[in-house]
Design a protein around this nucleic acid. Sequence first.
DNA 1: GCCTGGATTGTCT
DNA 2: GACAATCCAGGCA
Length: 192
Amino acid sequence: MTSPLPLGPDFFERDATELAPDLLGKVLAGPDCAVRIVEVEAYRSDDPASHTFRGPTPRNATMFGPGGHLYVYFTYGMHHCANVSAGARDDGQAVLLRAGEPVTGLEVMRARRHGRADRELLDGPGKLCQAMAIDRSLDGADLTGDGPLTLYDDGTEPPRDPIVGPRIGLRVGVDTPWRWVDPRTTLRLRRR
DNA sequence: GCCTGGATTGTCT
DNA sequence: GACAATCCAGGCA
């Protein structure tokens, strides 16, 4: 275990399908809690399932910004989802953070998730945002510096044998295997 | 354990 | 005006 280091902009400035599996095992730290990422999905602008497929809009502006920033969107009338922008400016790429495991701030997250079992605190994209109090006010936050949220490498290597499969909840783009799961997780996640 | 249906609102066509 | 990168409760096995 080396000392935790924030990931720099260089780490994020590559294709979302390369970045996504490397985010497994990394730590997303907020002001009062931190989470180890165990499930991700990649989205690109040439991908019909991506919010950026039809070009820039006010909502998806962060995905077209530089890599290493937080893209938060609101969906199904009641849920937020958190993404990390990837690639260079104007690339329109991002990695959706689907699930995580608690690192610090367990009590805070339990309170925000209102009595859910620990294994159900962070095992879905909407739940992860609820537990970490992520909403649209954090859209565009810089994850590489002194913002409210930071992505760290705490010395945990990405898994050598990540589970790869199709993305979840889509009407289109289900044929591309752009979802990665860390096999070391104890969460009950779809494994294929 | 697995499956089904309802909730609810911002966003784009 | 329709849809959406979801979650949860409830029913059944």
